[in-house]
Computed example of a mutant assay.
Amino acid sequence: MPWRPMTAQDLAQAQILADTIHVDHPEEAEVFAERLRLYPQGCLALEGDGRLIGYALTHPWHFGKPPALNSLLGEIPHDATTYYVHDVALLPEARGRGYAAQIAEKLACHAKATGFGNLSLVAVNNSQGYWERLGFHTRSVPGLEEKLLSYGPDAVLMVRELAQALS
């Protein structure tokens, strides 16, 4: 699998990818650096032709309480209840080649091995259907509506139960 652990040397390229891919969801370099420092095993890079063509930032968190965009976590909670997928980003040239499905399975295996019963994420940019094909489904959490709007008008909280097989 071409996904590998992210290193500090990847941060500048990951930031460029984020700024290119997530124009409507900008995040500062400190967000990337902190995720890597706090939970390096959840930060992965996808390399192609000697450069970054994708990345994933993930970490344990509290279910139904996604971190605000462009915010620092401070620490990984000891009482985390979900394995949170903060961001999976692929350049157009990397899409349609199975890399997102690969990383979803890699993250599911890691989450399960570390004791989590689910993965969760906030789907943005009309990506809900894509995540559904990877075994995620929407979940309504009372009181979360306003926070989800900060991610964009189409943002939805999604969860994948790890006992559930992909269809």
Rank of each mutant, 00 (worst) to 15 (best):
M1W: 08
P2H: 07
P5K: 07
A8C: 12
Q9T: 11
A12D: 14
A12I: 15
Q13Y: 12
Q15R: 12
I16Q: 09
L17K: 08
A18G: 10
T20W: 14
I21D: 08
D24T: 08
E28G: 12
V31M: 01
L36S: 00
R37C: 12
L38M: 09
L38A: 08
L38N: 03
G42Q: 00
C43S: 03
D49Y: 10
R51N: 06
R51S: 05
L57F: 03
P60T: 04
W61G: 03
W61F: 00
A68C: 06
I76M: 04
H78V: 14
H78Y: 14
T82Y: 12
V88K: 00
A94T: 02
A94C: 05
G98F: 01
A101V: 14
I103T: 11
A104L: 11
A104D: 14
E105K: 15
A108D: 07
A111Q: 08
A111E: 11
G115K: 06
F116A: 08
F116S: 06
N118S: 11
S120A: 10
V122W: 02
N125C: 04
N125V: 02
Q128C: 07
H137F: 13
H137G: 10
S140P: 11
V141C: 07
V141R: 07
L144Q: 10
S150W: 09
S150I: 05
P153G: 08
D154M: 05
V156Y: 01
M158E: 01
R160P: 13
E161V: 13
L166G: 10
